[in-house]
Design a protein around this nucleic acid. Structure first.
Lengths: 213, 213
DNA sequence: CGCAATATGTGAAATCCTTCACGAGTGAGC
DNA sequence: GCTCACTCGTGAAGGATTTCACATATTGCG
């Protein structure tokens, strides 16, 4: 049943919430709880689950352990996910050392840059020359890359990544990369998000209609 | 006319594309061009514009200059937008120095942290003690904050921000802050985005239905 | 100057997504 | 063990958003 991107996003959110609940000692959970935590309606939680055959019991809700196991199976994130970071500027290095990744079973295998002064193959997370990227991608069977290079070279580096066999890109460069022919792209444009925030504020303040007078 | 968040996001994207086009010397533009660049259908571009009374000419498309001016008016981003960064760890400092902000007329006024060793009020962008945050927010009339603190204190710091008068938060901490009572929150959960990327890849590979057998 | 090509603007249709509402089990309490 | 309040699962209804399709206007060109 065509699962859209939004559904996958929600499933992942459910899973994260469930893991927090489990660490707090929860054993069962109701659709209301998950709905609150994720910010959707209870009906939608149940609907999402039903699409994937996740079932609970009529008065006992869902078993937390069970649900996590099922979600992991569905989402396919049982093992550690390996990723590379391309572009080791400010954002790139910050991401390489980001602690949040460990908790989610994500491991940064290596960083890449063009600047020779940044290269350090002996660091805990090695930083290599961008020219080595294709070999590492192949030998390590890397599928996903975080792109954090300047705007001017972003498109070109993205193509190099795809050519090297990368199948998913998390793009922090301020250009809109398009998902095409079996390469999935997720764009995170920080400046754009901020701009939107300002706009939404503005709209929230003075009503939503600002068309012709 | 109830403008949803999605419409605002698209308008901002149009504006960004238009500015790139203008810098390339374009004078007029068609809905097709914008649609391609933003990844939507031409009809939607026209519909979005019509909602806000943005009009073009029947065979000449839209005037780039004109359109940008109108969008700026509608989106309310004529002047420089000022923002603070709370939490000057890896991500926080990277954001403080992020170049993409300058281009979008966003200025980071100050950073805040609890760690005394990080404080440096004389830096180009000063880093101050978090306790000074409420005063700076008030005196500088700051409305928007970027939140980049560890998970454990994120909720608490967010409350402090709201109490100090902040009206919009761009949240990089891995908890879901909820937009409530006239505070707009935009969550960017990097680990979650990566997880989603892996899942989408997985789904793209082996079809979308993975429910009961 | 008139025509034909082309792009806009918009009501109507279609599609997609969410919520509603209710039947049906089920666990807890007495 | 019986009852009852409670929660799931789901078809149908409802909304919202996007696309369609075409009348209409404009411009370039012969």
């Amino acid at each position: 049943m065509s699962a859209t991107k939004e559904v996958v996003v929600r499933l992942t959110k459910y899973k994260n919430v469930l893991e927090k609940l489990r660490s707090l000692g929860f054993v069962k959970v109701f659709s209301d709880n998950l709905a609150d935590a994720v910010g959707v309606s209870p009906a939608l939680v149940r609907k999402d689950f039903s699409v994937f055959g996740l079932t609970g019991k009529k008065r006992a809700g869902y078993q937390v352990d069970d649900l996590i196991a099922q979600l992991n199976r569905i989402l396919g994130v049982d093992e550690v996910q390996r990723v590379i970071v391309v572009g080791c500027g400010k954002i790139g290095t910050a991401l390489m050392r980001y602690r949040g990744f460990a908790r989610e079973r994500i491991r940064v295998v290596a960083g890449f840059d063009v600047d020779p002064s940044k290269i350090d193959p002996n660091a805990p997370i090695p930083i290599r020359d961008i020219n080595e990227m294709p070999y590492i991608v192949k030998s390590e069977k890397i599928q996903v890359a975080i792109l954090a290079v300047p705007e001017t070279v972003a498109a070109q580096v993205a193509e190099a990544l795809i050519a090297a066999g990368i199948r998913g890109i998390l793009n922090f460069a301020p250009i809109l990369l398009k998902s095409q022919n079996n390469v999935v792209v997720q764009n995170i444009n920080i400046a754009l998000e901020l701009e939107n925030l300002f706009c939404l504020l503005r709209f929230a303040e003075q009503g939503l209609d600002r068309g012709r007078p």
